[in-house]
């Protein structure tokens, strides 16, 4: 019970942050760079063993802001995962929020911290989870208006709706991103790849059992920049 309450609290903070970011008037952002737009999401989800494998697609949205040396990305997505072979029989919806805040350090490198929360519906078909992430990003300008990034980090404090824990280095994430400016920077084509791997273990009194969770998520979309 307490674990589910924690996930819900993190979810609330994320929604609050997203609302705040999305409700900042554009006039105040005139010295900044802000973009927001829809995305198509598609992913692969696996849990516990190769028999529980899902694939699916859905919709999402992405908001980005750049201010001085700081930048932040917020992703929202809802994917309907369907069994992909194995023993899984029921599909489920995964609503996910990703937040990453970065601080530019030097050269192509930035430090980043973030938060990820995924909620499964029906709740017993898959694990809902939340974690805080920390890592680094490397970004390069491929050409005028074309940027790509590669980021990675660890996920800390992971919480799962079905219980279990992850060791210190057992939860990692990896990301790859592309942004192409069009219409003099007013329109952006975005593409993001996010891979999460959590070496989760559970213990029902008979000893620790491995119950890993892994998700590959791709997102392609458009964004309007202000």
């Amino acid at each position: 019970m307490s674990i589910r309450w924690t996930v819900g609290r993190l979810d609330g903070w994320t929604v609050t942050a997203a609302l705040l970011l999305s409700h900042i008037p554009t006039v105040q952002l005139s010295a900044q760079q802000f973009s927001i737009g829809p995305q198509i999401a598609f992913g692969d989800y696996r849990e516990t063993s190769a028999q529980l494998s899902y694939r699916g697609g859905g919709l999402g949205a992405k908001a980005s802001v750049v201010w001085k040396k700081f930048s932040a990305d917020v992703w929202l997505s809802k994917i309907r995962y369907k069994p992909s072979g194995g023993t899984a029989t029921n599909e489920f919806d995964a609503s996910e929020i990703n937040v990453l805040v970065r601080y530019y350090v030097a050269g192509p490198f930035s430090a980043e911290v973030g938060y990820v929360n995924r909620k499964a519906e029906p709740e017993f078909e898959a694990q809902s989870m939340g974690a805080v992430t920390a890592g680094a990003q490397m970004a390069h300008l491929l050409g005028p208006g074309v940027r790509m990034r590669l980021n990675g980090g660890l996920m800390f404090g992971s919480k799962f709706s079905g219980g279990g824990s992850v060791s210190g280095l057992g939860a990692v994430r990896l990301g790859l991103g592309l942004t192409v400016d069009a219409l003099r920077g007013r329109l952006r084509v975005t593409g993001d790849y996010d891979f999460q791997s959590l070496s989760r273990e559970t213990d029902d009194g008979s000893g620790a059992l491995s119950a890993p969770i892994q998700q590959s998520l791709g997102r392609i979309g458009l964004a309007i920049a202000f």
Partner: peptide, 23 residues
């Protein structure tokens, strides 16, 4: 990727990676 979960899915990474390579 975890070995217990079988071979990982490269579909998502490959789609985005192809976009980046094309760019």
């Amino acid at each position: 990727s975890s070995g217990d979960l079988g071979s990982p899915s490269f579909r998502e990474g490959a789609v985005i990676g192809l976009g980046i390579a094309a760019a």
